[in-house]
């Protein structure tokens, strides 16, 4: 490791605020774009599964569907 102590890595000779902020914002944006599609897919599948369930329990049960 280049820095001698945790504190030194945090301050980075006065540039710490800029560097850590840049890394933090980037990590936040990256995790957002990595997590968004999974959430979208799971929401869709949950919705689909719910509809299938309703259709099965509904008054006009059609066993051919599903």
């Amino acid at each position: 490791m280049y820095f001698q102590s945790f504190n030194e890595a945090l301050v980075m000779d006065g540039h710490g605020g800029y560097v850590w902020a840049a890394y933090a914002i980037s990590l936040l944006v990256l995790s957002l774009i990595l997590l968004a599609p999974r959430r979208r897919q799971q929401r869709f599948l949950r919705q689909m599964a719910g509809e299938q369930k309703r259709r099965q329990q509904g008054p006009t049960v059609n066993t051919e569907v599903n």
Binding site: M12, H15, V19, Y23
Partner: peptide, 10 residues
């Protein structure tokens, strides 16, 4: 100095 470390994401 250390500010250049931003290069690794920029």
């Amino acid at each position: 100095g250390n500010s250049y470390r931003i290069i690794y994401i920029h």
